[in-house]
Structures are given as structure tokens and as C-alpha cells.
């Protein structure tokens, strides 16, 4: 465990709290892509299936996995029930079939092992790298977003971006490599880069998130 990984995991936790806080205070899920949220739930469930047999290996990992699956399911529950009237499916129109299909193909072609658990793990890594696309697409369609929504997206993106120095550190210090996670993590960070740039130039300077 190193500083980058801890910072990345904390960033992920923060993103969850920011999202739930946004929905509770504004009593709405305006600006949040339901499709991205569903993709994240699929990501966490397929990746953390190993809770069933590695639960005792690391209390930290197991606790985080439970938090990620639980909060993701809870977010979807809120979007389907309490805040359903504020969800507008007409602006959440990204075709997720391609993301799921592409991730499934990559997972089947290059898993570390051809076992169900490893293929699902690999699938979840690829799917996570693109799961934000419906959300970014929605931002692009609306052209602006509430500041708190952009904080959420930033924290979620920072999580995988911070894993990149973590993988570099582990490569040099522990000779540890995880090529699937590293390549997918870099793709994920690239997808966020435009958003990071606008977030940095606008939101951090106290202005509203608005696309140029």
C-alpha cells in the first residue's frame, strides 16, 4: 500500500459521498447519468465477486468493495424511486451496448486466465474505463452542470488517475505489474482529460461548469 493508492481510494470514497450528498441536498438526480450509474454497479459486482472467497485476505479491500457495491446499488435505488421524477431519460441516450460489447470482447480475448472469475474481472476493468462516457455525453448535451456534479466526476476520475503513479511505484518497488488494469486505467484517465481541463480552468476558479 502506498500513498498514491490510498489517495486514489480516498478519492473514490469522496466521489461516492459527494454524489449522495448532491442527491440528498438538491433532492434530485438532475445531471447524473443513470446509464453510467448502472454501468458502475455492473463493474463493481463483476469485479468484486471475489469477496466470496478472498473476504478474509484483507479487511481494507473487503470493506471498500462492500462500500462500492452497496453505495452504487443505493444510488440506483434512489434514482429509480425517490428521485425518479427528476431523471430525464431523453438526455441520457448514450448507446451503452457498444461499451459492454467491447469490454466483453477484450475480456474474452486477453484475460490473465480463462476462468469465469478472471474474465469477469477483466471485463469489469475495461468497462470501468469507459463507464463515464454516458455521463460525459450527457454533460456535453446539456452544456453545463451543477458545481457539485462536477466535483463528483472529478473525484471519480482522480481515483483511476492516482492509480497510475501507484502502478509505476509498484513496478519499481515491488516488480509488480498488472498490464490490463494499467492500460485500462490510462485509457480511463485520457477519457477524463478534457473534463479535468475544463474543471480546472472553470470550476476551480469559482465559475460554473460550462462547455466552451
Amino acid at each position: 500500500m502506498n500513498l498514491f493508492r490510498i489517495a486514489g481510494d480516498l478519492s473514490h470514497l469522496i466521489s461516492i459521498f459527494v454524489l449522495l450528498h448532491k442527491m440528498r441536498t438538491s433532492k434530485s438526480c438532475i445531471g447524473i447519468s443513470f446509464k453510467s450509474q448502472v454501468l458502475y454497479l455492473v463493474v463493481y459486482v463483476t469485479r468484486y465477486l471475489d469477496l466470496l472467497w478472498t473476504f478474509q485476505h484483507s479487511a481494507y479491500n473487503s470493506l471498500m468493495k462492500i462500500i462500492f457495491i452497496g453505495s452504487s446499488a443505493y444510488t440506483i435505488y434512489l434514482m429509480l424511486n425517490d428521485f425518479k421524477p427528476t431523471h430525464d431519460p431523453n438526455i441520457d441516450t448514450f448507446k451503452v451496448e457498444y461499451l459492454i460489447g467491447g469490454s466483453a470482447i477484450l475480456a474474452l480475448l486477453f484475460p490473465y486466465k480463462w476462468t469465469t472469475a478472471e474474465v469477469l474481472w477483466s471485463f469489469s476493468i475495461w468497462l470501468e474505463s469507459v463507464a463515464i462516457l454516458p455521463q460525459l455525453f450527457m454533460l456535453q448535451r446539456t452544456g453545463e452542470a451543477e458545481t457539485i456534479t462536477t466535483h463528483y466526476i472529478f473525484a471519480l476520475g482522480a481515483y483511476r488517475a492516482l492509480y497510475i503513479p501507484n502502478w509505476l511505484y509498484r513496478y519499481f518497488m515491488e516488480s509488480y505489474t498488472d498490464p490490463i488494469a494499467t492500460v485500462a486505467g490510462i485509457i480511463q484517465t485520457i477519457l477524463y482529460s478534457d473534463f479535468f481541463y475544463i474543471y480546472y480552468t472553470k470550476v476551480l476558479k469559482g465559475r460554473k461548469f460550462e462547455l466552451p
Partner: peptide
């Protein structure tokens, strides 16, 4: 060491 048997990251 390379990759461990179980994934130790999140």
C-alpha cells in the same frame, strides 16, 4: 514477484 493470484487492488 509479478502478479499475485488474487487481485490486491480495488
Amino acid at each position: 514477484k509479478g502478479r499475485p493470484e488474487t487481485h490486491d487492488e480495488l
